[in-house]
Structures are given as structure tokens and as C-alpha cells.
Design a binder for these strands. Structure first.
Length: 443
RNA sequence: GUGCCUUUAGCUCAAUCGGCAGAGCGCCGGUCUGUGGAACCGGAGGUCACGGGUUCGAGCCCCGUUAGGCACCCCA
């Protein structure tokens, strides 16, 4: 018989139990934080009409998976979770309470060239607020993002904050022609990555006036206490349309962040931050870690134009997106969430002559709410069976052979320490719990 | 999508000039009849990623493909 060749698409991966245990644990943490901040769950289909998905992606549309379905409809796999949100808001206006705060943890698909921390199928954890133009909404989005990253235990992350309209004002103030502004944003966004000398060189080569290039670098490179930097810019840019509003909005945002008790070492003003250029309209945020180099682990911002593309009228919205895979890269590198490779707490081996007794004990333990993996290999030696338990990192074994069964007792063995206690059947649950508690207190 | 690098046992990696396919760890078995991990002894496991080409002869050279990585692009 010729076997089929098992193969998997580039950029797609299997998640074996060990990885799934970690992934599910992280998603549980994120969900918990989202709900603590008052966001509610939402899910949408993986496939949408191409027309629905297309609106905002801009030049990224070429990265979108798209095809014809059996009914010849032009469809695509969702590229992010934000466009489906906008569609949901437009379709269910009457059923939703506005402002609408939802979270969405689900896979998205992009046909990118895979690299470390970059896949073609990956999970995003989004939290968005639709229907509020207030900077308070942006502050809450930043707060939930920082809270989620902290809850996972990322050791050193900062979120950089900027304002799309402020960036536009800075470029205009520097004398960058509007037609070249987008190109300039892209270049200065690399400031923290390649340094001001390299950025200056790229700007000079991009055809903008030399004076503008130098002035942009000066403006965008300012650092210091956000309040001071913003106050300085407010004066300097008073002539630039939109600049005052942008500065005021950012100042307001920083005030709210302080009052929300977001640790101030977790965020910073970065006037060079650009981010996705196609749809952000207000404050923008980006979370990065120094190690490992996996790009940004989360992004956020205000996008007042997107929802309106489905409604024909403007609907303010702001939200954040956390990249599960990239965060997992960090978590694994620093072993931030130690996990066992089994979900079971207890292992029950089987003896050929005492299978029924082991089964009965298994039932009792499960009835008490314990997670029990009962051996299905009674023909193997007990040594082999315990070896299996050891490989799966199960910490406790409950051993019942013929003599124990006859005496109405069982041996409860701590597989980490080798300590074994013999106890009557009616005490077995207590004995197991006692071992488990010792383990949790980290002895 | 563009450029460059990589692909040999389950894993990490060797293999001189083109000349018999190797190690460590892991796995399996035994020492050890009902109590794992240690030690010792033994064993299995390979289409050298796949498909072509050059050559007396290819893991090694050439072309194509697959997958992974790095840089760009973009982004989580």
C-alpha cells in the first residue's frame, strides 16, 4: 500500500498537546484580563465576502487569502479581527449597546513569507471600543493592553505612544511635501531600529528637501517627560492645522493613563511611531520587547473611519491587538509560564489481576474532581507504566494491586519525590490532595 | 512578493579532495516476576528533504521543488 505523504502548508503549524496547554493557559489569562476591563466576547466566521474584507487592507490586500467558493462567490479568510468587528457593528446596530466593548480571540490568515514569530495562520487577541470619541476610551485600550502583557509576565516591555495627526503635523511643520509624507512616516518609524544617522540618510535619499529632512529628525527625536515635550510642541506648532488638537488629545490621554494607575515605566511618548498607515486616525500604540526580536507583540490605535465604511456615517472606534504567537516566543524563551506536559494530576497504573480495583479508584478520584489518567496498558509492567507517567510529568500515582485490593488500601506515590503512603480507599482522595497541596506550595 | 543562507537517525549535529552513513542524547530490550528516573550490557532506527542532471562513482558539484531561517517589504 502506498502511503499518502503527510505534509503541511508553509507558515501553518500543528500545535501538539504540550504547546496547546501553554496556548490555552495564555488565552485564559488574556480573557480574564479582558473581562476584568469590561470587554465582552464576540466571534465571527473565518470566511467573509471579499468585498467585506477589502475596504481597509490597502496594499496589504495582496497578503489576503482569497478564492471562489463552490457557489462562485468571491470570498476570503479574515486578515484581522477589526474588519469583522466593523461589519458586526454595522449589521447589528439595533442589538448592540453602544459604546460596544468586545474582545475576540481567534485565528487570522495572511499569506506572508514566514519568519520567526511570523506565520500564515496566527491568533490575535483583540479588545476594542466602538462608539466613543473620548480619549478615555483610548486610555482604557492602552490600560487593558498593558494589563494583559503584565498578567502574562513579560519581563520587559514598553508601549510607545504617538498620535497620527501629530505625526502629520510634524511632517507639515518640517516642510515635507504632503505627497511624500507617507514615505517619510515609514522611514522615521525605523528610528529606534536603525538609528537617526541611517534614517537621516534614507530621508535625504527620498527626495525631500534637505532642510525638511533635518527638521523632521529634530522634531521626531524629542524625548523627555511627555507633558513637557507636548507643551513645547504645542507652542511650536500653533500655526499648523490640527496640531493643537492632536497635542491636546495626547495630553489628555497621558493624564488618564496616570489616573488609571498604569505603571508609568510601561509606556512612553515616541513621536517617531507610525504604525499601519492605512486606517489609524488618532492615538497609536505599539508594544515591543527587547528579546527575542520578534517584531511588535501588540499594536493599537484609534480608527474612526473604518466602521463608517459600512454605514456611510462616521463611527469612532479604538482598539488593541495582541499577537499570541509572538508573545509565546517570549514566554518560551524566558520560561515565564512553566507547564507540565500533561493535564492529569494523577496516574493510575493497571495490574492484570486487579484492573477492576484500579478502575474503581479511578472513578472515585474523578468523582472528587481530580484529573486522572488511567493506564490502558495492563499488560505492561508497572515499571513501564510509571515510566509513562514520568514522561508525561504526572506528579502522583495511585497504585492498587491484588494485595492492596484485598486489604482495601492503596499506595499513593508522589512521583516527584518518590515518597509513598499507604491508605485505605476512603482516604485516597485526601491523601492525593495533600500531596498536590505540598507541590503547589512549592516545597 | 524580492535577495541570501540552511535542510543528514526521534532531537542536536559530524562525515577531509567527490570514494563503505557516524556520534551524543533519546527510544526499545535485558540485568530487575508488583513500583519510573541511576548504572551496566545489548538492540532497533536512514530513499542523506523531494525530483532531475553531471560523473566510473554524489550526503558533497549543477538545476528545479518543498520546508525552515535572516534581511527587505509589511506587520501581530
Amino acid at each position: 500500500m502506498k502511503a499518502r505523504k503527510p505534509q503541511i502548508l508553509k507558515g501553518f503549524r500543528d500545535h501538539l498537546p504540550r504547546q496547546m496547554i501553554l496556548r490555552q493557559r495564555m488565552m485564559a489569562i488574556v480573557r480574564e484580563v479582558f473581562e476584568r476591563h469590561g470587554f465582552e466576547p464576540l466571534d465571527t466566521p473565518a470566511i467573509e465576502y471579499l468585498e467585506v474584507l477589502s475596504g481597509k487592507a490597502g496594499e496589504n490586500e495582496k497578503l489576503m487569502y482569497h478564492f471562489s467558493d463552490q457557489g462562485d462567490r468571491a470570498v476570503g479568510l479574515r486578515y484581522d479581527l477589526t474588519v469583522p468587528l466593523a461589519r458586526v457593528v454595522a449589521m447589528h446596530q439595533n442589538e448592540l449597546v453602544l459604546p460596544f466593548k468586545r474582545y475576540h480571540i481567534a485565528p487570522v490568515w495572511r499569506s506572508e513569507k514566514p519568519q520567526r514569530g511570523r506565520f500564515r495562520e496566527f491568533w490575535q487577541c483583540d479588545a476594542d471600543i466602538v462608539g466613543s470619541p473620548s480619549m478615555l476610551a483610548d486610555a482604557q485600550v492602552a490600560a487593558v493592553m498593558i494589563d494583559a502583557l503584565s498578567a502574562i509576565g513579560l519581563p520587559s516591555f514598553t508601549i510607545r505612544i504617538n498620535h497620527r495627526k501629530l505625526l502629520e503635523s510634524l511632517a507639515r511643520a518640517a516642510g515635507v511635501p504632503d505627497a511624500q509624507a507617507v514615505g517619510v512616516y515609514r522611514v522615521i518609524d525605523k528610528l529606534d531600529k536603525i538609528g537617526s544617522a541611517a534614517v537621516g540618510a534614507e530621508l535625504d535619499g527620498s527626495g525631500i528637501p534637505a532642510s525638511a529632512s533635518a527638521r523632521v529628525l529634530d522634531l521626531v527625536g524629542r524625548t523627555g517627560e511627555p507633558g513637557d515635550v507636548l507643551a513645547g510642541l504645542r507652542e511650536e506648532l500653533v500655526e499648523i492645522p490640527g496640531a493643537t488638537l492632536a497635542v491636546d488629545e495626547l495630553s489628555e490621554l497621558f493624564r488618564y493613563l496616570r489616573e488609571l494607575q498604569v505603571p508609568s515605566d510601561r509606556y512612553t511618548l515616541d513621536l517617531a511611531l507610525a504604525r499601519g498607515l492605512d486606517y489609524y486616525t488618532g492615538p497609536v500604540f505599539e508594544a515591543t520587547v527587547e528579546e527575542p526580536q520578534v517584531g511588535s507583540v501588540a499594536g493599537a490605535g484609534r480608527y474612526d473611519g473604518l466602521v463608517g465604511t459600512f454605514l456611510g456615517r462616521s463611527v469612532p472606534a479604538t482598539g488593541m491587538s495582541l499577537g499570541l504567537e509572538r508573545i509565546i516566543e517570549v514566554v518560551e524563551q524566558f520560561n515565564l509560564l512553566p507547564i507540565r506536559s500533561s493535564v492529569a494530576d494523577v496516574f493510575v497504573p493497571a495490574f492484570p489481576d486487579a484492573i477492576e480495583a484500579a478502575a474503581r479508584i479511578t472513578g472515585v478520584l474523578r468523582g472528587a474532581g481530580l484529573r486522572v489518567d488511567q493506564s490502558v496498558q495492563p499488560q505492561r509492567s508497572v515499571g513501564d507504566q510509571l515510566k509513562y507517567a514520568g514522561r508525561k510529568e504526572i506528579s502522583i500515582a495511585v497504585i492498587v494491586g491484588t494485595s492492596e485490593a484485598a486489604a482495601g488500601v492503596c499506595n499513593v506515590k508522589n512521583l516527584c519525590t518518590g515518597v509513598q503512603e499507604t491508605c485505605p480507599w476512603e482516604r485516597v482522595v485526601d491523601q492525593v490532595r495533600s500531596f498536590l497541596e505540598h507541590e503547589e506550595t512549592g516545597a
